[in-house]
């Protein structure tokens, strides 16, 4: 195809599918599906409370109106919760990656509709949904497998694009809804006053500081696409900057975009993180000398 498409289109196609080790997919898969399970229980436990809310307050989003989905009630919410929890934990083992992967994607999407069809939509997990949608297409992937795969490359590239789009397009949304005044407005000042931590209380007393911060935020968000041009040390520095941004936001106003942080690991060589192997080595290490890494 790339030969037939000619050079530019071929280059785009190769960029979308540049191969990565299958071990990276195995690790990413485990992380993403474990997060789904943790999300149900730890991060957004309020979704389950919709089980008791009568259907008259259910206002399905567009996708919920297009698909023939039932109005959530106690039975649907409870069954969905337990089946999704079991499927996510099973999927985290890497077994039946297509079957379990598609199942988790479909059930989690429905779970999100149960979460967001009562009057409030969250914007912190587009990239996680993309990861859930593309992971099943890779098929089998073993932990530690160094075989590189173009299928794997496409899945991670899509997730990375969704991560960067979340930043870039949220600046775009600021200009659309807030206008250019967003830059000089009091959005940050009010956020700090409403939910600022002790670490940043002082910042509202410094004239213009939070306006400068607003300019910096937009500059950061609009320049995130350069991560695709960077290599080596600069690449990792940029990924570190993205995580540091969220660390600062959390320290300042205790807002954390956990699903987004999970999707962002698609930028990292996760195949080198082998907790099970390290634990085994540690146990063996008591009797034998440690193996060279």
């Amino acid at each position: 195809m790339s030969a037939r498409l000619g050079r530019p289109a071929g280059a785009v196609a190769r960029w979308f599918t540049s191969p990565v080790p299958l071990g990276r997919i195995a690790a990413f898969r485990t992380l993403v599906y474990l997060f789904v399970a943790a999300d149900l229980v730890v991060f957004t436990p309020w979704v389950r409370l919709h089980a008791d809310v009568p259907g008259t307050l259910y206002q399905p989003l567009l996708i919920g109106r297009l698909l023939p989905l039932p109005t959530p009630g106690w039975l649907l919410t409870t069954v969905l919760f337990w089946v999704l929890l079991a499927a996510a934990l099973l999927a985290a083992t890497g077994r039946a990656p297509r079957l379990l992967g598609w199942l988790v994607f479909a059930l989690y999407l429905e779970w999100m509709l149960v979460a967001m069809s009562y009057g409030k939509v969250d914007h912190d997990r587009f990239d996680l949904l993309v990861a859930l949608a593309v992971l099943p297409t890779v098929g089998a992937a073993r932990h530690g497998d160094t075989t590189r795969s173009e299928k794997a490359g496409w899945a991670l590239r899509c997730t990375q694009l969704a991560v960067v789009a979340t930043y870039f397009l949220s600046s775009w949304a600021k200009f659309r809804f807030g206008g250019l005044e967003w830059l000089t407005g009091a959005t940050m000042a009010r956020a700090v006053l409403r939910r600022g931590t002790e670490l940043v209380e002082w910042s509202t007393h410094v004239p213009h500081l939070l306006v400068v911060v607003q300019f910096l935020i937009v500059a950061f968000e609009l320049t995130t696409p350069i991560v695709f041009l960077l290599r080596g040390r600069w690449y990792y520095l940029h990924v570190t900057l993205m995580y540091a941004f969220h660390l600062m936001v959390f320290a300042a106003v205790t807002i954390s975009f956990v699903p987004h942080l999970i999707a962002m690991t698609s930028f990292l060589p996760l195949e080198r993180v082998r907790p099970v192997r390290w634990a085994a080595r540690l146990l063996r290490g008591r009797t034998a000398p440690p193996l060279a890494e």
Partner: peptide, 8 residues
Amino acid sequence: PFRMYATA
């Protein structure tokens, strides 16, 4: 749209 904290 990703409109978290997008209003001025």
